[in-house]
């Protein structure tokens, strides 16, 4: 069920992201919806349940690494296919960002609106920066030793325009700050509506009791 909800969120997210209008003033930035969905699966966790009467806490619950990496992979493939990027670039960025967030989520993420805004802004900034770096690196033919690999990735028509990139980064950061709290809230509601959240919490309780 969790997987189906994730797939639904990704499909709706990519459709909205593609249909969203863009302007030269925003550096043609698209709203970073997919990375926000991946970040939700990386960051969302339940507080540690009490495991026994002493009050010692058990393992905190939350989305698994498996689900987060699946979201990164599927979301990345959808994104690369629809946005005409070389297939494989976005899954790498999604997975790297998702893994980092997933690893430190208990230390840095509280789930409060302010934290969500800060994380959203960071995601909005990181995503285009990382894609820009990868496109520039691939265009420099650093993959020359691997011709079969390099041919596909170095053939992009990307040309670096600093002014446009600056606009894109600013716009994407702003959109991320606005969108992530909203997507986090909507994803929580969706999981509650479909029963995923309840099921996961029950599973956490069972695990901690055992």
């Amino acid at each position: 069920m969790s997987f189906a909800v994730m797939l639904l969120a990704l499909v709706i997210g990519v459709a909205i992201e593609q249909a969203a209008p863009s302007s030269v003033y925003t550096g043609f930035a698209k709203p970073p919806i997919l990375i926000c969905v991946v970040a939700y699966y990386a960051l969302n966790f339940s507080p540690a349940p009490l495991s026994d009467q002493d009050g010692r806490s058990g393992q905190p619950g939350g989305h698994s690494t498996t689900l987060m990496l699946s979201a990164a992979f599927i979301g990345g493939i959808l994104s690369d296919s629809l946005f005409a990027l070389p297939l494989g670039i976005t899954p790498v960025v999604f997975a790297a960002v998702g893994s980092l967030l997933h690893h430190y989520r208990e230390k840095v993420f509280s789930g409060k609106p302010v934290t969500n805004i800060v994380f959203g802004a960071a995601l909005g900034l990181i995503m285009p920066s990382a894609v820009n770096i990868l496109l520039l690196v691939f265009n420099q033919s650093v993959l020359a030793p691997w011709p079969s690999l390099g041919h596909r990735l170095t053939g992009t028509p990307y040309s670096f325009q600093p002014g446009l990139l600056f606009c894109k980064l600013v716009a994407s950061t702003a959109m991320g700050a606005f969108l992530f709290p909203l997507i986090y809230f909507l994803m929580k509601r969706l999981e509650l509506l479909t029963g995923v959240e309840v099921l996961r919490n029950s599973q956490d309780d069972i695990d901690s009791n055992n």
């Binding site: 959808l78 296919s81 629809l82 297939l87 494989g88 899954p91 997975a95 079969s148 041919h151 990735l153």
Partner: peptide
């Protein structure tokens, strides 16, 4: 990811084109 990167261009185009 490794398989995806090493697939020939024609194969990846079939996948991305279908999507």
């Amino acid at each position: 990811l490794g398989i995806l990167f090493s697939l020939p261009e024609e194969q990846t185009n079939v996948l991305s084109g279908s999507i």
